[in-house]
Structures are given as C-alpha cells and as structure tokens.
Design a protein around this nucleic acid. Structure first.
Length: 341
DNA sequence: GATCCGTGGCA
DNA sequence: TTGCCAAGGAT
C-alpha cells in the first residue's frame, strides 16, 4: 500500500473528534488554524469554542474592538495572531464583500496567513492540491525518508516543501494533509512508540536507529534576561494601568506602569518615575520568574499608595475590580491572583 | 534571512 | 531546573 494510503487509513481509524473537523466552513477552519499555530490542541480547544460562541461569523468578529478580541485571546500567547485575525476579518468584511477567498494564492495574501495556513485552508475547504508543511510533517517525512537536512534552514524548508508536495494524495489532498499531521501528533511523536507504527517496516529512521535524532535543527535560540518593575499605584479603589504599544512582547495588552532595569531592583528608592511623586511605598511582591521562548523576565510588583489620583497622560485610571475587563499578560494575571487572597 | 513573538506540558 | 517542543508568521 502507498505511503499516503497508509496514512489516510490510519487517520480514519485513530483521528480525534474535534469541533473543526467535519466542516468545510473557511471561517471555522481559518480560526482553528490560527489558534493551533505553535499551540497544542489541548491548549487551544477552549479558545476555539469561546471564539465561535462569541463570534459566530466573520462579520461578528470584524465588528468587535481589538481590545475585546485580545481579551478573549488572553493567556494563549503570540498575540499578533489575534491582532492579525481581527485585521483580516475586517478586510474580508469591508473589502472582500464578506466572502473568504477560495484559492491558495488569494488566501496567502491575508495577514497572519503563511504557506502552511494557506495550504491547510485551501485543501481542507476547497480541495486544492497544496501540501501542508508543519512541525508534524517535518518529523514524519524526515524520519520516513531518512533526511537530515536541518528543517530550520532555507534549503531544508525548500526540500521538505517539495517532498511533501510529491507525497500529497491527488485524490484527496485535504484528507491526506490532515492525516499526516494527526499521524505526527499522535503516532510519530518526538518520543514515539515505533512498535505499533504502520509505517515501521519501510521507515528509514527506524531501520537505521535514527528516529530520536530526526528531524535535525541547527539553530538554538538565545534567551535574554529582563528585569521588570511594575508600579502598582493608586488609592483604595483605583490604580493606573497602561497599554503596551511598543514593538515588543505583549503588544496592545495592558499592564501596570513599568520601570525596566538592567539588573534586579531591591529598594523602592531605586525606582525613578515621576508617577511616584508624593506616593507612599507600601510593599513589594515576591519576585516572579516568567519564561518566554526568547526571554527570562524577573518581575517585581511595587505597591504604592497615592492620596490624589489626578489624570495622567499615557495612563488609564481604573477601578481595581475592573482590571478583569482588560487583556493582560499571564505574568500580570498571576500577580493579580496572588494578591486576591 | 536570522530573529522575534507566549504559554504550558513534559522528560 | 533546564531544555525542548507545539497545526507558523512577520519583519
């Protein structure tokens, strides 16, 4: 039996039942694909249901504010996905007559949609013969064919894209694309059980004991340390927050006024910020260690009391209990939970 | 084209 | 604890 036939047969037997399966609605497929970028099903499933519940159509999503879209996305990470999702919904609504484009070449023009997602949507919804290449596909193909070209190199991406296209089932490209990804997610995992694999016999990596060594990555990510000093300042009822507008992590999410330092701050007198004029220091939180893919953030929350809270440019004065209406990073959310008791 | 963008689970 | 990984894309 052919490679693609084995995968499709395996898929029909072992695939998970998921809310975005068994539909060809481009909106539903699109939303699920954006949510699942660099994200496990278990982590994204609730978000998908929340979004479909809150925004049943592209039109509903387009009519929402970005702040509220980000609020619903809060906690999922990679927030540019939410901003681009919203931008694209508005483009479809206003420039494309509310109709999702139906070809790969048109779909890939949309913001937040690259080669993978365009191939996924066009093949799942419209039967276009475009092979998806994601982390699962790299793993399955590199092992089955015994390819050690680094998957994070330009030449490697090109090589695997072409190989994937050659393997694609012409009869049912959408089904095949879903099958090879599900196979990578459930069977051909980073640490697989090859004894129950239907492709074990002809698998090059299995024959050569190279399963754990593939696929090959050549680049290692550099992690930099940052020290965040959040100023939690206000009276009994209210405090100030600000929107992160810089081109940095957590863009367009909200936080407390921030002083970033080059090393750990140990005394409130080291904090230099005009917002602290006439403020009375109350306490400092424990140090929070927050890990991101490229950063280690060490954060402290410095709490101050302020008798008179006049309007401040660049800051919003809000009731403390209303903070839950704003999208905040997980780090801020964890601090808020720590002081709720 | 190398780097950046989150979060959580797991060995 | 640390590193790696997960249905990638933008710059």
């Amino acid at each position: 039996m052919h490679f693609s036939d084995i995968l499709i047969r395996w898929y029909s037997k072992y695939k998970r039942e998921l809310p975005w399966r068994n539909t060809t609605s481009p909106y539903h497929i699109w939303l699920s694909e954006i949510i699942l970028q660099q994200t496990k099903v278990a982590q994204g499933l609730d978000y998908y249901n929340k979004f479909i519940d809150q925004y049943p159509t592209i039109e509903d999503l387009a009519n929402e504010t970005e702040d509220n879209v980000l609020k619903l996305w809060q906690g999922l990470g990679y927030y540019s996905r939410a901003r681009n999702l919203h931008t694209t919904a508005k483009v479809i609504s206003t420039e494309l007559n509310g109709t999702f484009p139906v070809t790969y070449d048109e779909i890939i023009k949309l913001k937040g949609i690259g080669a993978y997602t365009a191939a996924a949507i066009s093949s799942f919804c419209f039967g276009e013969k475009k092979a998806v290449v994601d982390g699962n596909v790299y793993r399955v193909l590199s092992r089955y064919f015994g390819i050690n070209t680094p998957i994070d190199s330009t030449i490697g991406k090109k090589e695997f894209q072409e190989l994937a296209q050659e393997c694609l089932s012409i009869e049912n490209p959408g089904e095949y694309n879903q099958a090879i990804m599900e196979f990578g997610a459930l069977q051909c995992t980073p640490n697989p059980n090859c004894e129950v694999c239907p492709l074990r016999e002809p698998c090059n990596a299995y024959e050569n004991s190279m399963v754990k060594a593939l696929p090959v990555k050549e680049k290692k990510i550099k992690v930099k340390d940052r020290y965040f000093n959040f100023i939690v300042i206000g009276d009994n009822e209210s405090f100030y927050i600000q929107k992160r507008e810089a081109k940095d992590i957590w863009q367009n999410l909200y936080q407390f006024p921030l002083n970033e330092s080059k090393k750990e701050v140990v005394s409130p007198f080291e904090l230099k910020d005009s917002i602290l004029n006439q403020a009375v220091f109350l306490r400092v939180s424990e140090q929070f260690k927050h890990l991101l893919s490229h950063q280690r953030i060490y954060a402290k929350f410095w709490e101050f009391n302020l008798a008179e809270m006049s309007p401040l440019k660049g800051f919003k004065k809000i009731k403390k209990r209303n903070i839950q209406e704003f999208a905040v990073p997980r780090l801020i959310q964890k601090y808020l939970e720590s002081v709720k008791n």
